[in-house]
């Protein structure tokens, strides 16, 4: 098993953070992981992306030239990575910000109105949690509880009500995919 995922969006959307949470959670589950943030001018220019590899074997290259999953938070991310996804792979799109239709017909596509859902939850910032929840529902190897543990480790958050919102975000994201949106 080797799953390569690119999380992509713009700075401030919490893209790098959910990639990191995913990697830490998988590590705690005993899996091999690598986390490779895009680096340099791109980061500073406003777009942000990272590549997370998860495997039960040693991971060779941390780069994903043809990822199994792409989680696209905005339009430029879709444009940039749609073509790279492995045939049969999966694309998760934040449909509130991406008005463009994906063109691939050999991949599975999920449109998640993450901002609308986050607003309903009462915190627009938990949009990334909703996307992460949706993604984990697809890859099926990390539970919400594991992700929550990973999140606590990463953000070192003590604020219980804040963490409750994050958990809800993960859950409604997961449910949205499981219900077959």
């Amino acid at each position: 098993m080797l799953i390569k995922t690119i999380f992509s969006g713009f700075g401030g959307q919490g893209v790098l953070m959910i990639g990191y949470v995913m990697a830490v959670s998988a590590m705690r589950e005993g899996m091999n992981v690598t986390y490779l943030p895009a680096y340099g001018a791109e980061v500073r220019g406003g777009t942000a992306n990272c590549t997370v590899s998860i495997s039960d074997e040693e991971i060779a290259s941390p780069v994903a030239s043809s990822p199994d999953y792409v989680v696209a938070f905005n339009k430029p991310s879709l444009v940039k990575y749609e073509g790279h996804i492995k045939p049969g792979g999966t694309l998760l799109v934040n449909s509130d910000l991406v008005d463009l239709e994906p063109v691939r017909d050999d991949i599975e596509i999920f449109r998640i109105p993450a901002i609308t859902m986050a607003k309903e939850l009462g915190n627009e910032k938990s949009m990334n949690m909703i996307m992460l929840g949706a993604y984990s529902a697809k890859i099926k190897i990390i539970s919400i509880d594991s992700l929550m543990n990973g999140l606590v480790e990463v953000v070192k958050a003590k604020n219980a009500s804040r963490m409750e919102i994050n958990r809800k975000g993960l859950e409604i994201g997961e449910q949205y995919v499981l219900k077959g949106a």
Binding site: Y20, A23, N32, V33, T34, Y35, L36, Y39, V63
Partner: peptide, 10 residues
């Protein structure tokens, strides 16, 4: 190299 420096691994 830049990859070794940036990549996160356990």
């Amino acid at each position: 190299d830049g990859m070794m420096g940036q990549m996160m691994e356990p």
